[in-house]
Design a protein around this nucleic acid. Structure first.
Lengths: 240, 240
DNA sequence: CCAAAAGTGTTAGTGATACACCCATGT
DNA sequence: ACATGGGTGTATCACTAACACTTTTGG
């Protein structure tokens, strides 16, 4: 087996881009950064970067590192989304000294916005959150990436734990329902949401209550992750 | 904006690998090729290759081309699966003249095996089909890719048209049920499968009947793709 | 006539939806 | 007192799963 001369092949670059979602002011929102360099200088884009192959990173590790650099937060729910490879998706292709292509291994991430606010670093002037109904003009094919991610999240909220990632550790059932409503973009019947959720037996009552303006105080629950994992292992859906 | 010297970056290669599935002898099977070169010379592997950037290919187009080269067939159901990026997944990494990584943009494809048999080209000695319960020792991380693909197909058969791709254009309900059983790996109640399917109103009766050994002849149906697409657009599931 | 495979109809059980009602809190 | 929002119970409807029964074929 002979050695490979790496430079002899048509080059392809892989960037790792991340669409980080949260719920702000009762709407699904995504974190964007303002590009400091060409191409698309001054425009908004998804955070991203290269896979640090020299330091043994894979794509998921690279995404995790980028996320932490932007938010100063760890333990964010993160998942590979899709790899975008269309010719022309990145204008740098045509500036290279020979034909090349820049692939984006896109990821999506979700987090409770309370955590973001609590941590410094997110006050950098080039980072901002945008509601998905009011996105600015985006760089590259990033609006397509965001569309794909939103579809995936809307689908996955019904049978995975992504809904619980958007809510603090301790939460009330109405708060969780509100998250589901914001992600799905439609109202849910409070009674039936509650009934279904309790029947799953994945919530643990903390004994505390939360008073929010008027109305009866809502009990505060914690998620029993073990029971949720069991449910998922058995392939059961949380909601339909 | 200055030009980019493409060779200054740590190189990453992208291969496109395809797991093509069909049903053979009542079991889900995957097409493999025997590698003619190192690494893994003589071992079985998924068909794959490079994205032909010079000819404007993207990953899906490359997968489509590879599939056609191996099977001489067009119009195969094909979808991107996942991008595998773990360090060490391809031994050629460590043979390059500087640090590099070989990413696999994995795809899955499915086809009715009758079509494969009908076309020449699949009799090449280095191509063979293996039932997924009896896979040989595989090259690279290809057994992980196949596992991921099988999970995805088992999931997707319930709400997409992948089940219909595994069956000829004209088929009987018991034939279709058999396909679902083989993919899901469990038996389905014939009565209830039939009832659910007919209620969807996506089948068109051709008027023909099929006699298979003993038993009452089964009516032969065609899929009404328009109605299926409508169902999917409305987000409805075919089966639960 | 019998076995095998396809189709039909029925019933019990489960889950979704909608609604009426009760309870605790702030104004 | 009353509006607001959370919690509880129930009736209705649809869908699922299991099974008994009929029909049509080959042997």
């Amino acid at each position: 087996m002979k050695n490979y001369n790496v430079d002899a092949y048509p080059p392809m670059f892989n960037t790792v881009d991340i669409a980080l979602f949260s719920i702000i002011d009762n709407e699904l929102a995504v974190m964007l950064i303002q590009r400091a360099e060409e191409p698309y200088k001054g425009f908004w884009a998804l955070p991203g970067g290269y896979v640090d192959v020299e330091n043994d990173e894979d794509a998921l590790a690279a995404a995790k590192r980028e996320l932490q650099e932007e938010t100063n937060l760890e333990n964010i729910y993160l998942e590979q989304l899709y790899t975008f490879t269309k010719k022309g998706r990145d204008p740098r292709e045509s500036l290279a000294n020979r034909p090349c292509r820049i692939f984006s291994i896109a990821h999506f991430a979700i987090i409770d916005y309370q955590k973001v606010k609590a941590i410094a670093g997110s006050d950098a002037s080039d980072v901002a959150w945008f509601k998905i109904s009011k996105l600015p003009k985006l760089s590259f094919d990033h609006s397509q990436i965001i569309d794909t991610a939103v579809s995936r999240i809307r689908n996955k909220i019904n049978y995975t734990n992504v809904g619980f990632e958007l809510v603090p550790k301790k939460f009330t059932i109405p708060e969780l329902r509100s998250v589901f409503e914001k992600v799905l973009g439609r109202e849910l019947n409070p009674t039936n949401f509650r009934t279904k959720l309790l029947k799953l037996e994945i919530l643990e009552d903390t004994g505390e209550k939360k008073v929010e303006g008027r109305g009866q105080p809502a009990p505060i629950y914690k998620l029993d992750k073990k029971k949720l994992l069991e449910l998922q292992k058995n392939g059961e859906t949380l909601f339909n």
